[in-house]
Design a protein around this nucleic acid. Sequence first.
DNA 1: TCCTTGACTCAGA
DNA 2: CTCTGAGCCAAGG
Length: 139
Amino acid sequence: MSLPPRARAAFFQAVWSITRLIPPGQVSTYGQIALYLPCPDGVNEPDFLAFRARWVGEAMAACPSDVPWQRVINSQGKISQRRGAAQQRALLEAEGVIFNDRDQVDLKRFGWDGPSSEWLKASGLVIPPGNDVSQPGLF
DNA sequence: TCCTTGACTCAGA
DNA sequence: CTCTGAGCCAAGG
């Protein structure tokens, strides 16, 4: 399977749009953002489900300067290791996000609830089951 | 064309 | 809690 350039560009744009909604002092995860994105046409559904979170990571690696990329971390509540990780932590701490002694953020406390159902509907994105109620366990 | 690397996540041990 | 393997994509050398 392959992700056509147009679909890839649209996927990245959607990732960035959602990321821009994350308020300062809160964080989201690659997997959480992926939940709102539909499987692009021509893409194998099972493969999409397995790789969408990684694709969100790819989108973050190529994001425009107006995207608050620092607010997206991994599902363990940690900053994914790479060049720039230290800066990401510094930016988050400056916003009030607290890391524990294992370099993790408490997603129960700092995790973002996600876009409103109205926003998702207006954007043509996926409204995950239970989006109207909080799901502290997932994020 | 082959090989490597990469901002992921989940289940199992 | 930590570590590994599976999933098997996309870009660049």
